[in-house]
Design a protein around this nucleic acid. Structure first.
Length: 428
RNA sequence: GGCGGGUUGCCCGAGCGGCCAAUGGGAGGGGACUGUAAAUCCCCCGGCUCUGCCUUCGAAGGUUCAAAUCCUUCACCCGCCA
């Protein structure tokens, strides 16, 4: 990993559109001339992080590559309380045991994006439960609470917007205090002087800066990344099926790759700037290619490849791409060898059929894979002629599979519409 | 505490005893055109053992040959008056 301090870091981030707000930019720029310690907090609100969380996380990685010292904080405590930022209703509390389990899974995920081994500026991991849990109520109110003005707390957007609506519980109201304590704690123990986060975190981060000033007379910085938007107005990182997760159990590497490959033309360059570690020159070159011939989808492919490699692995990215080509009919299915076929199908939702038994209909099988919610839905697909078996159209609702349909004697490929694939495996 | 209005399918929202699995819009799905884009156009969109049957209109009871529609109780929301 590169260890030299890169003074162009802020400029690069700006060019990529990765800076929403910062505290005093000149002072921040000055401080970044030497290695600083910075942190990013992630709350365990699900068993996995999703592609939206990846935006600030990769900014952290850029900071580490530029020679700074990253701390990844997992919100074992804040996750129990619930951040009101960016929400217009109260969160339901998650069970402590569940949150603990999520903390562990998320720690593991986050750690893949940082270098913990380098001797120069290794990343470290923290959990705010470590210093929050032992704190007594009296100590909390006297040592921390005294530094907070309720008036200012009420002025935070996350709180005031909720007061105008259905209100906010004392629990969520206190969230900003907990996050402020984290910053103070890391400032004290590691001289952490920069916190980054999504733009919705600005209020929470600046609350921390105030606490550091009041409690320690110290000064520190804030940097937020903008909320990533899509040209069509829909939410980034969501599909019909839900969020795009990093956990391969929750979003298969195949689906992950497809998500990026199917990016809107109008978004793809922005996504590359946001996520890719290619240089500015390389990206500008891709932009040119893309504008000249968007149909070739060079930029889409580069984006999908790079991110799948980063999040899963280069081997998986390679496999998934080969699979996609074959499954989308860019290669003859019948000519695939069993190993290639098996690895392609490994990424798909699937069902099994026992060799000796009578083979079910296409409709039954598609429903069994879970690609559609009901048999009625599967029938509809056939009726609307969007049903395929091994890339050939399924003629009728009562169409039954036959032995000969199984490629290499083992696998049959179901497709619904243009891009929704599933597989059937024949087992003995 | 009193009076009135509301709670409908993934979301918004019509329906106000039979013609209701329930108008319309959005989301979603299939097709055409393309590039596994976008826009546009056409079609579909509760489930099933599918010319029929089953389960849905806040919850539970009731009236009726027949209820999303009427009655009773309960829960929640929203107004107005105390």
């Amino acid at each position: 990993m590169m260890t030299a301090i890169n003074n162009d870091l802020l400029d690069d981030l700006k060019w990529r559109g990765l800076i929403a707000q910062t505290t005093d930019e000149a002072a921040l720029r000055e401080s970044l001339k030497k290695p600083v310690t910075l942190y990013l907090g992630t709350d365990p609100t699900a068993p996995s992080i999703h592609v939206g969380n990846l935006v600030p996380l990769l900014v952290m990685r850029r900071f580490q590559l530029a020679g700074h010292n990253p701390i990844l904080l997992v919100g074992g405590a804040t996750g129990l309380v619930g951040d009101p930022s960016g929400r217009n209703d109260e969160r339901s509390l998650n069970d402590t045991a569940i949150v603990e389990q999520w903390v562990n899974r998320i720690k593991l995920q986050l750690s893949k994006f940082m270098d913990f081994e380098t001797t120069h500026n290794p990343a470290t991991m923290a959990n705010n439960l470590d210093w929050t849990a032992p704190l007594s109520t009296i100590a909390f109110l006297r040592d921390i609470g005294k530094h907070f003005s309720v008036n200012q707390m009420l002025n935070k957007d996350s709180v005031s917007s909720r007061l105008e609506k259905d209100g906010i519980s004392y629990t969520e109201f206190s969230y900003q205090v907990l996050q402020s304590m984290d910053y103070l704690e890391l400032f004290r123990r590691s001289n952490c002087t920069l916190q980054i986060g999504g733009s919705d975190q600005w209020g929470n981060i600046t609350a921390g800066l105030d606490l550091i000033r009041r409690a320690e007379g110290g000064s520190a910085h804030a940097l937020t990344v903008p909320l990533l938007t899509k040209a069509d107005g829909t939410k980034f990182g969501k599909t019909a099926g839900g969020s795009v997760w990093l956990d391969p159990e929750m979003t298969s590497p195949y689906a992950f790759f497809q998500y990026w490959l199917n990016s809107d033309d109008a978004d793809v360059i922005k996504f590359i700037k946001t996520f890719s570690f290619k240089t500015r020159e390389e990206i500008e070159e891709l932009e040119k290619t893309h504008n000249e011939n968007p149909g070739a989808r060079e930029a889409h492919r580069a984006l999908a490849r790079e991110l799948t490699s980063l999040v899963h692995s280069p081997e998986i990215a390679q496999r998934v791409e080969v699979a996609a080509r074959a499954l989308f009919g860019q290669a003859d299915l019948a000519e695939l060898d069993e190993a290639t076929l098996a690895s392609a199908i490994a990424e798909l939702p699937r069902t099994t059929v026992k060799a000796g038994e009578e083979l079910p209909t296409w409709v039954d099988l598609l429903a069994a894979t879970g690609v559609v919610d009901s048999k009625s839905a599967a029938r509809r697909i056939v009726k609307e002629s969007g049903a395929y078996l091994n890339n050939e159209k399924v003629p009728s609702e009562d169409f039954k599979l036959e032995k000969s349909h199984f490629l290499c004697g083992k696998y049959a490929l179901l497709r619904k519409g243009k891009r929704d694939l599933a597989a059937v495996e024949l087992i003995s």
